[in-house]
Simulated assay, not measured.
Amino acid sequence: MPRIPLLVIALFFLTGGIAHFVIADFFIKAMPDYLGYHKELVLISGVLEILGAIGILIPQTRLLAGYGVIALIIAIYPANIHMALHPEKYTNISTLLLYIRLPCQFLFVWFVWWAIAPERLKTNPIS
């Protein structure tokens, strides 16, 4: 039976992944201008979020999915920075929330790292 933190992670990423398809325009608008293929990147990240959500619930894929989710959080960080630097594009989101979200990403990386600790420690007892 999955542990509660794993369910929280799965729900968060499943919801986010689905949102990448349902409200793709919002995520496309969040993409930094220096990146190309905005729509494609949004759709790919949506698929990866859904796969991470499913994978984190399966014991055999949990460790790989956890590392993948952490990599994805890091990969989308530039979009979060872009949103914080351009709050005028996101009038329905508080500027304060856009900035608070930035350090929260690091907390979420830690949360995933902590949630997959039993699997990490089975593989490498030193980590």
Rank of each mutant, 00 (worst) to 15 (best):
I28C: 12
I28D: 10
A30P: 08
A30D: 10
A30C: 14
A30S: 15
P32L: 11
D33N: 13
Y34M: 15
Y34K: 15
L35K: 05
L35P: 02
G36N: 14
G36I: 03
G36F: 03
Y37Q: 15
Y37R: 14
H38I: 02
H38S: 12
E40N: 09
V42G: 04
L43Q: 13
S45F: 07
G46M: 13
E49Y: 01
E49T: 02
A53Q: 06
A53S: 10
I54H: 03
G55R: 10
G55D: 07
G55S: 11
I56M: 04
I56G: 04
L57H: 13
P59H: 09
P59L: 07
P59Y: 09
Q60N: 06
R62T: 08
L63K: 08
L63C: 04
L63I: 07
L64S: 11
A65Q: 04
G66N: 07
Y67A: 05
G68I: 08
G68F: 08
V69Q: 07
I70G: 05
A71K: 03
A71S: 11
A71V: 03
L72H: 04
I73H: 08
I73A: 05
I74K: 00
I76V: 15
Y77F: 11
P78H: 00
A79I: 01
N80H: 12
I81R: 06
I81T: 02
H82Q: 06
H82T: 03
M83S: 05
M83E: 03
M83Y: 01
M83D: 04
